[in-house]
Amino acid sequence: MQALYGQLVVGLINGSFYALLSLGLAVIFGMLNIINFAHGAFYMMGAFAAYFLLNWAGLGYWWALLLAPLMVGAVGVLVERTMLQWLTGLDHLYGLLLTFGLALVIQGVFQNEFGSSGLPYAIPAELRGAQNLGFMFLPNYRAWVIVFSLVVCLATWFVIERTKLGAYLRAATERPELVRAFGIDVPRMITLTYGFGVALAALAGVLAAPINQVRPLMGADFIIVVFAVVVIGGMGSIMGSIVTGFALGLIEGLTKYFYPEASSTVVFVIMAIVLLVKPNGLFGRTA
């Protein structure tokens, strides 16, 4: 039974990363109509930013949690301003190819500099140790990742679904030219949205650094599953990303316990079934 609970916690941890990453992808797709294949590279850059901050500037985990998303988010803003903005109105394929190429370049540069093996990043002193829940030991850091991710996801959902800024974002997703004609600087909003989505990926990278080590290909391994999560949740659906991210993490964990051979394919089997039954995803809006 301990093993089952252990796998459930691992599932929730993975679910946290799935949710954070797919949330960023959903925000970017909803607003820019771009399938951001560079998302895994930005996730990796978040973890590396935390590593650099610690080893080059002496700034620890808590600073990294704040600064790494800002730094990588600024890179995202630069990418949107210099490259992605020129793809407005073109087919999805252009954005997909550009961001895919960008991911390869970024990962290649990091691999060239740091090799393929993982760099260690320690759990902050405040979050070491574990809690005895009676039926299992729950590591403090893992509990923190789950709770913090959930809070960030729900806060993002709240901003998008319940605030004025979110109303601008949702409206601009439908008719950007009309929202601009109401006096909103839509191009700036698009840039900042992309930066925010990228910052979410970087935040997930910082959270992952003490668990998964810091590796140039840490995002490449992850991003395919995250895209499956986005498809299952419904492209562009905020709540879909959050719920599906956590749920699929849990399902993966359960599969690891009951039928480990299928644990790496279960997400894709679910994706195939969802696409057959509900092509717009579980939370996707019909056109």
């Binding site: 601008y168 949702r170 409206a171 997703t173 439908e174």
Partner: peptide, 19 residues
């Protein structure tokens, strides 16, 4: 008309900022 499907009536009504 340009009514936004993802917004309710109040959000549609108050979307354009007061200039």
């Amino acid at each position: 008309r340009g009514i936004f499907a993802s917004l309710d009536v109040k959000e549609n009504l108050t979307l354009p900022p007061v200039v």
